Simulated scan of single mutants.
Amino acid sequence: MIDKPAYSLPVIHDRRLRDPSKLFEIEQLDLEFSNGERRTYERMRSRGLGAVIIVPMLDDHTVLLVREYAAGLHQYEIGLPKGRLEKGESVLEGAERELKEEVGYGARDLMELTRLSLAPGYMTHVTRVVLARDLYPEKLPGDEPEELEVVPWPIDELLTITGRDDCTEGRTIAAMYIARDYLAAEKAR
């Protein structure tokens, strides 16, 4: 276990927004550190309420992935279902909705495992990792431009899937390893 050091957070003297876009804002922070050093940092502030990524377990050994177009890489990627939270939704409600929209299943057992940040040095965005079990078929209309292909994958074969050219998203990879280790520890108890 790693202990948290007793650092005092820098004092924020000023905040300014720059270049707002639909998805995020760039915020400049004028900071003063405990040793008196001053710096201006920039960070991307997310707009919205956060996001979820779901690890849907069809059974004890099979995770359900989806194949969907990734505009950033201009290719189809295999990954976990995910999406932004909507107003008034809890993390688990958002996970349930996204699961039904993207995979065509609901879950009787949803549990938040942890949260992931992509680049905490300059982004405020956090994604909640949710384990979904005891699945049942139920489909909701989603916002994807085309039907997503559901790809069942053995949770014990993560090295194979993460070695592929079409499974590169860091949140998906981290969430699958976290869920696999959680499930193994749960089974060992």
Results as ranks from 00 to 15, higher is better:
Val150Glu: 09
Glu86Asn: 04
Met123His: 06
Thr172Cys: 02
Leu23Trp: 08
Glu37Ala: 09
Thr124Pro: 12
Gly106Cys: 11
Arg16Cys: 10
Arg47Met: 06
Leu158Ser: 09
Arg15Gly: 06
Thr124Asp: 07
Pro120Asn: 14
Asp165Gln: 10
Val130Arg: 08
Tyr76Ile: 01
Thr127Gly: 01
Glu37Thr: 06
Pro154Ala: 14
Ile178Asp: 12
Met176Trp: 02
Val130Glu: 06
His74Ala: 14
Gly72His: 10
Gly170Ala: 02
Asp3Pro: 08
Ala185His: 01
Arg189Tyr: 04
Arg45Lys: 09
Lys139Ala: 06
Leu92Ala: 05
Arg39Val: 14
Arg38Lys: 15
Asp156Met: 12
Ile173Val: 02
Arg128Gln: 11
Pro137Asp: 08
Pro56Leu: 02
Ala188Asn: 03
Glu96Arg: 09
Leu85Ala: 07
Thr168Trp: 02
Thr40Phe: 11
Glu169Asn: 08
Lys87Leu: 13
Arg171Trp: 00
Glu138Pro: 04
Glu68Thr: 05
Gly142Lys: 07
Ser90Ala: 03
Ser117Tyr: 12
Gly104Lys: 15
Arg18Trp: 11
Val63Pro: 04
Arg45Asn: 05
Ile155Ser: 06
Leu113Arg: 14
Met176Ile: 03
Arg115Ile: 00
Gly83Lys: 11
Glu169Val: 00
Ala175Ile: 07
Leu85Gly: 07
Leu64Gln: 02
Gly142Ala: 03
Leu92Gln: 08
Val129Thr: 06
Glu149Ala: 12
Lys82Gly: 10
Ser46Leu: 10
Gly121Arg: 13
Arg84Tyr: 03
Arg133Ile: 13
Leu85Asp: 04
Val52Glu: 01
Lys22His: 12
Glu149Lys: 13
Arg115Val: 01
Gly48Asp: 02
Asp109Phe: 15
Asp14His: 15
Trp153Ala: 07
Arg164Cys: 04
Val126Ile: 09
Thr162Cys: 12
Gln28Gly: 14
Tyr136Phe: 15
His74Phe: 13
